[in-house]
Design a binder for these strands. Structure first.
Length: 715
RNA sequence: GGGCGAUUAGCUCAGUGGUAGAGCAACUCGUUUACACCGAGAAGGCCGGGGGUUCGAAUCCCUCAUCGCCCACCA
C-alpha cells in the first residue's frame, strides 16, 4: 500500500510540488515535447492586467484555456499557450491615481517621468503576484515565451505599426469631437464610455420666434444657429439662411436659420440651437453647413469667457444661475422637471463626458473594418457561441474612427512630432526631427500615449513576433482566442483588423467567449457589494482542481455562471472520492503488471465497452468545446458508475476463489482508473497527476512518466 | 429606439427532436475490502403563458408576458 493513500487528499500538500515538476519537465514549451507532437495548437493568453490580483473571471479563463491546451497536448499536438501581462494603460493609471490620492498626492503635480517610474515599479511588482496566481491555477503555459505589453520589442513594434498606418493614410491627426473626461484629463474611445440614465430638467427657452428645448443651458451662450427640419410645416415660412435678432443670455444675438433633415420633428418643438464644440450631433450639423464652432467649456469643466459673468464657474453650479437669469429675462417658457435621458460617462469614474473638439490621433476604421467583416463572412473565423458572429458583424458595419491618443503617461508613447505653429503632426520613431516639414517651424514631441487597445490589438502578432519571428510560421494563425464576451467589441475586432492589415492573415480561426462569474445568487460580483470571491482563497480552502471543476461544470460558453462555495465544496469531495477510488484500486491490485488482454470475463468486457463509449462521447465534447458537458459526464461516470456500481460489485469478485475472474477484474479496475484519470486531467490536473504516479505502467512505457504528456485514450 | 439572451426541482444551473438531469438544501435508513469529504432509498417539475409544425417538442416555428445584458448623437 502506498503510504500516501492512507490519508485524505490534501491539495495544499501536492499542488506546489506537482507544478514544479511540470515546469522542470520543460513540456509547457512545445519545443521540448516528444517528436510525435507535430501539429501545432496555439492559444495566446489574454494578458491579465498587471495592476492587482486575479479575480474569479481570470480563474475561469485560465481554467478554460488550460483545459484546451492540456487536452490538445494529450491528443499529440505541439501545444503552445503563450502567457502575458498587460500594462493596461488607463486602467493601471487609475489604480495608481487612487493610491496617490490616499497618500494625499496627485499626478497633476508630478513630473511625468517620476510618475512613469513609480507606476512602472508598481506594475512590475504586481506582475509577479499575478504570475504566481496564474501558476497556482495550474496554467500549463510556456513561461519562457511570456510577453509583457511594455517589453522594449513590443513598444518598438507598436510604434512601427503606427508609422506604417500613417504612411498608408490609415492614421491621421485632426480636430474632431472627442470624449473628454474632465476628472482624468484625457480623451476616451467610445467603448470607454458608458451610458448612464439620468433625470434632468428639460428647459424650454424662448429663442426669437422659436421655443427650443435643452437639458444643457450652460452650453448655450454662443448659440447663433437655430435648426429645424426642412419638411416641418410649422416653420415653412422660415427659410434656410434667414437671420433675426433675439435677446439671449448675455444680450442680443443675430441668429441664423438652418434647415437640416437630421432634426427629429417629434422631439420637443422640433427646433434646436446647436453647440458644435460640445455635442457630437451638433458638430456634424455644423460640419455639414460649414458653421463656426466656439468652445464654451474648458478642459476642467469650467465656463470660458464667452459665458460673461459666469466665467470660471463649474457647469453644475452655473446651470441654476443661468436659468435664474433667463427667468428674469422672461425667456423660460416651461420646465419638464424629470426628463429621463442617457448621458455618456467615463466608464471608470462616472463623470459625465464633456465632448470637446481636440486635435487627436485617429485610425480610419471603415476599410479596416471591412476586411474583418469579409474574413468573418468568408468563414475564416468562427464564434462560440455562434450568436456572437452577428454582434461582431454589426460592430464592423458601424465602426467609427478610433481615437488612439490618451493624455496619460502610463502607456506606449506615441512617437510623433507636432509643429508648434501650423500643428502639422508626423511620426518620428528615431526622435530626430527638429523642424516642421511643412512650415519649417519648431516642433514639439507628442506627450500622449496610445490607447491600450492599440497595442493589445496586435497581441497575437506581438506574442509570436510577427512574420519575422521564429514562432510565427509555426503558430500563427493561432487556433483559439478565448476571452470574455465583454471584449467582443473592445478587443476581438481590433486583433482581427491588425493581423489582416499587417500580415494578411486572421489571428485565430475560433473565438470562444465565456460569460461573467457571478456570486451564489447570480448577482454580479463587486467590491461595493462585498460578494467578491477571491480565487486564491478558494484554492487555499478547497484546492485548485475543485475550483476548476466548479467553474467549468454547468457553465456553457457565452453564458454567465454563478459560483457558490457549496458548489466548490462538492468538487473537493469529488477529488477526495477519486483519491479513495484510487486507494481501493491500488490496494486490490498490488504487484500487478498492467495488461488489458487479461480482461477476459464477459461482464468485464461489457464494462470495457461502456468505458469506450463514454470515452468517445467525452472526447467529442472536448473536441466541440463543450467542456461543461465533458467534465460533468466524467464526474458522473467516475462517481456513479465506477465507484458506486463497478467497484461495489468488484468486492465480491475480488474476494472469490475464481482466480480467472479476479484477475480480469483487477485489470479492468486499473484500466478504468487509468482512463478516467487521463480524461480528467485537463480539468483536474493536480490530483490526476498525483494519482498517475502510482498507476502501474507497462514495462516498455516510453519517455516521461508525467500524465501531462500522456496520450489520450485511443478511440 | 434597436439587438441579444434567459424563463426547467426549494436555490444555482445543465440538457436543442425520442419515457425530465446535476450540485446544494430537505426526508428515511445504513458504518459493509476505498471514501461520513460516504452508501442505499424515497421525495420533489402540466420544462413562463398561448398557438403551430411533427408519429413524437423543454428542445423547431409564431405570439404574449416577465427578467437580464449589450448597442444608440431625440436636443
Amino acid at each position: 500500500m502506498h503510504e500516501k493513500f492512507t490519508k485524505p487528499y490534501e491539495p495544499g500538500d501536492t499542488e506546489g510540488r506537482i507544478y514544479a515538476a511540470w515546469e522542470e519537465s520543460g513540456f509547457f514549451n512545445p519545443d521540448n515535447l516528444p517528436k510525435r507532437h507535430k501539429k501545432p495548437f496555439t492559444i495566446i493568453m489574454p494578458p491579465p492586467n498587471a495592476n492587482g490580483h486575479l479575480h474569479a473571471g481570470h480563474a475561469l479563463f485560465i481554467t478554460l484555456e488550460d483545459i484546451m491546451t492540456r487536452y490538445k497536448r494529450m491528443r499529440g499536438f505541439k501545444a503552445l499557450w503563450v502567457p502575458g501581462a498587460d500594462h493596461a494603460g488607463f486602467e493601471t493609471q487609475i489604480v495608481y491615481e487612487k493610491k496617490l490620492e490616499k497618500e494625499g498626492r496627485s499626478r497633476f503635480s508630478m513630473d511625468s517621468k517620476d510618475l512613469y517610474k513609480e507606476i512602472y515599479d508598481f506594475t512590475i511588482e504586481n506582475k509577479k503576484h499575478m504570475e504566481n496566481e496564474v501558476k497556482r491555477l495550474g496554467a500549463s503555459c510556456d513561461w519562457s515565451r511570456e510577453k509583457f505589453t511594455l517589453d522594449p520589442d513590443v513598444v518598438l513594434e507598436v510604434q512601427k505599426t503606427f508609422q506604417k498606418m500613417y504612411n498608408d493614410g490609415l492614421v491621421f491627426r485632426g480636430k474632431r469631437i472627442v470624449n473628454w473626461c474632465s476628472k482624468h484629463q484625457t480623451t476616451l474611445s467610445d467603448v470607454e464610455t458608458i451610458a448612464e440614465e439620468k433625470k434632468d430638467p428639460l428647459y424650454y427657452l424662448q429663442y426669437g420666434p422659436f421655443v427650443i428645448a435643452t437639458a444643457r443651458p450652460e452650453t448655450k451662450f454662443g448659440d447663433k444657429y437655430v435648426v429645424m427640419h426642412p419638411d416641418d410645416t410649422r416653420y415653412a415660412t422660415y427659410k434656410h439662411g434667414d437671420t433675426f435678432e433675439t435677446e439671449w443670455i448675455s444680450g442680443s444675438v443675430t441668429a441664423t436659420i438652418i434647415k437640416d433633415d437630421s432634426i427629429d420633428m417629434e422631439f420637443g418643438t422640433g427646433v434646436m440651437t446647436i453647440t458644435p464644440w460640445h455635442d457630437a450631433a451638433d458638430f456634424e450639423i455644423a460640419k455639414k453647413h460649414d458653421l463656426p464652432k466656439e468652445q464654451v467649456i474648458d478642459l476642467r469643466g469650467k465656463l470660458l469667457a464667452c459665458a460673461g459673468e459666469f466665467v470660471g464657474m463649474k457647469i453644475r453650479d452655473a446651470r441654476p444661475k443661468i436659468i435664474e437669469k433667463l427667468h428674469a429675462k422672461g425667456l423660460v417658457v416651461k420646465i419638464d422637471e424629470a426628463y429621463a435621458h442617457n448621458v455618456p460617462c467615463c466608464y471608470k469614474c462616472n463623470t459625465p463626458i464633456e465632448p470637446q473638439i481636440m486635435d487627436q490621433w485617429f485610425v480610419k476604421m471603415e476599410n479596416l473594418a471591412k476586411t474583418a467583416l469579409d474574413a468573418v463572412e468568408a468563414g475564416k473565423i468562427k464564434f462560440i457561441p455562434d450568436n456572437y458572429e452577428k454582434i461582431f458583424k454589426y460592430w464592423m458595419e458601424h465602426s467609427i474612427d478610433w481615437n488612439i491618443s490618451r493624455q496619460i503617461v502610463w502607456g506606449i508613447p506615441i512617437p510623433a512630432k507636432i509643429c508648434t505653429v501650423c500643428e502639422f503632426a508626423f511620426p518620428d520613431l528615431q526622435d530626430e526631427a527638429t523642424a516642421c516639414p511643412e512650415c519649417k517651424s519648431e516642433v514639439r514631441k507628442d506627450t500622449d500615449t496610445f490607447d491600450t487597445w492599440f497595442s493589445s490589438g496586435q497581441w497575437p502578432l506581438l506574442a509570436l513576433g510577427y512574420s519575422r519571428g521564429r514562432d510565427y510560421q509555426t503558430f500563427h494563425p493561432t487556433d483559439i482566442m478565448e476571452t470574455g464576451h465583454d471584449l467582443i467589441f473592445k478587443w476581438v475586432p481590433r486583433m482581427v483588423i491588425f493581423s489582416l492589415y499587417l500580415e494578411k492573415q486572421v489571428p485565430f480561426h475560433t473565438v470562444y467567449l465565456h460569460g461573467l462569474v457571478n456570486d451564489a445568487q447570480g448577482k454580479k460580483m463587486s467590491k461595493s457589494k462585498g460578494n467578491v470571491i477571491n480565487p486564491i482563497d478558494i484554492i487555499d480552502k478547497f484546492g485548485t482542481d475543485a475550483l476548476r471543476m466548479a467553474l467549468v461544470i454547468g457553465n456553457p460558453p457565452g453564458s454567465d455562471t454563478s459560483l457558490a462555495e457549496n458548489k466548490i465544496k462538492a468538487y473537493k469531495n469529488f477529488a477526495n472520492k477519486l483519491w479513495n477510488i484510487s486507494r481501493f484500486v491500488f490496494t486490490n491490485t498490488e504487484n500487478i503488471e498492467i495488461d488489458e488482454t487479461k480482461i477476459t470475463a464477459d461482464s468485464d468486457k461489457k464494462l470495457l465497452q461502456e468505458l469506450a463509449d463514454s470515452t468517445k462521447e467525452v472526447t467529442l465534447d472536448f473536441e466541440e468545446y463543450r467542456f461543461h458537458l465533458a467534465a460533468e459526464k466524467l464526474y458522473h461516470y467516475v462517481w456513479h458508475r465506477f465507484a458506486d456500481s463497478i467497484i461495489e460489485e468488484s468486492k465480491s469478485i475480488l474476494s472469490s476463489e475464481d482466480e480467472h475472474a479476479k484477475q480480469s477484474r483487477q485489470q479492468l479496475l486499473i484500466c478504468i482508473l487509468k482512463n478516467s484519470i487521463i480524461m480528467l486531467h485537463p480539468c483536474m490536473p493536480f490530483i490526476t497527476e498525483e494519482i498517475w504516479h502510482h498507476i502501474p505502467k507497462k514495462k516498455d512505457a516510453e519517455n516521461s512518466s508525467l500524465l501531462l504528456v500522456e496520450d489520450w485514450p485511443a478511440l
